[in-house]
């Protein structure tokens, strides 16, 4: 219980530091939000208008006053209004997020379908050609950039065969190619992870004991080994989420898929600061929250392992 409290405190501390840094970076950076807003409204900009908008945004206050005002409203999920669409930034992000979660889930599914059989087969036939080719596959998969896989899949299935839509969203078919692309990239990481955790699990003394009790090899393999091998997989969930953030951004741009990733890229090119700020703080919170719950989950599943199972 004490550990939970301590971790929760360091989670909040991290979030506070990160959001403050991002606030300072963005507010001290060159560039004038007032002119961004006025340009978005497509009118000739006068000095008076600029001053009015600056006043409205509170840009004439001291940086400290701006910071406390920002922090207060941020905590109440009032993340400011988009400079471009004049919509609340929070709403824009929340509207785009489900689409991103769909392809992330699809990617996890793809990665699991590819990596679990290959990874476990490699571990069970350690040193054989299966193991070697699985390893080659994993290293190669980790080296091909995901946007290239995406481009090739679009060319193959959308342009030449015409089976699937290349870009956009709306139907289940639109989810297929982005999820597949993202999943292939993730699979290479999981193949190695599942292989090594299976190897570790196979050598676990408790499993040897079970085997000595005369439980069939099949049952042993699937029931006990699998459970033991699951622990490291859960423990890197935080890393997976980190890589998914980058992955979804790139893949959504490649497939013109309207999720949070393409929203953030559009916002960066348009210098739409409230949206950028909301997205980055939200993602930082997600990553560290996942890690926090991970630690707790691991303590619950494998109390004697502590945090030793973490890969970093």
């Amino acid at each position: 219980m004490k550990i939970i409290g301590r971790q929760a405190v360091s989670f909040l501390l991290f979030l506070w530091i990160f959001s403050t840094i991002s606030f300072l970076l963005i507010n001290l950076a060159p560039g004038d939000p007032a002119s961004t807003i006025l340009r978005a409204e497509d009118v000739a900009v006068t000095q008076q208008q600029l001053n009015e908008v600056r006043q409205e945004l509170g840009m004439n206050d001291s940086i400290f006053e701006q910071y406390t005002a920002w922090l207060g409203s941020f905590l109440l999920f009032d993340w400011g209004t988009s400079y471009v669409t004049q919509e609340p930034a929070f709403m824009m992000i929340m509207r785009a997020l489900p689409a991103t979660i769909y392809i992330s889930a699809g990617a996890f599914l793809t990665a699991a379908v590819i990596a679990v059989p290959i990874g476990s087969a490699a571990a069970l036939h350690r040193g054989s050609w299966i193991d070697k080719s699985a390893r080659l596959l994993a290293v190669t998969g980790a080296s091909v950039p995901s946007f290239l896989i995406g481009l090739v899949l679009i060319q193959l299935f959308a342009v030449q065969l015409g089976w699937l839509p290349a870009i956009g969203a709306g139907t289940w078919w639109h989810l297929l190619l982005p999820s597949l692309t993202l999943g292939i990239g993730m699979a290479s990481f999981y193949i190695r992870l599942i292989r090594s955790s299976f190897l570790e699990a196979l050598e676990e003394p408790s499993l040897r004991a079970v085997s000595a009790r005369g439980i069939s090899e099949q049952k042993l393999r699937w029931k006990y080994t699998f459970r033991a091998a699951l622990v490291p997989v859960i423990s890197v969930l935080g890393v997976s989420i980190s890589s998914l953030i980058g992955g979804t951004v790139v893949i959504e741009v490649v497939f013109g898929y309207p999720g949070a990733g393409s929203l953030i890229v559009d916002s960066i090119t348009r210098r739409d600061i409230p949206v950028i700020q909301g997205y980055t703080v939200l993602m930082a919170a997600a990553v560290s929250l996942i890690q926090l719950s991970n630690d707790l989950l691991l303590r619950w599943i494998a109390p004697n392992r502590g945090t030793e199972g973490r890969v970093f």
Partner: peptide, 25 residues
């Protein structure tokens, strides 16, 4: 270790996004 713990799994991609928003790509 206290500071490092939080940033250890931090996605460099996210930081790169933030920096390109602030300083331009």
């Amino acid at each position: 270790t206290r500071i490092g713990d939080s940033f250890l799994a931090f996605p460099d991609f996210l930081l790169a996004l933030l920096l390109s928003a602030v300083l331009g790509p």
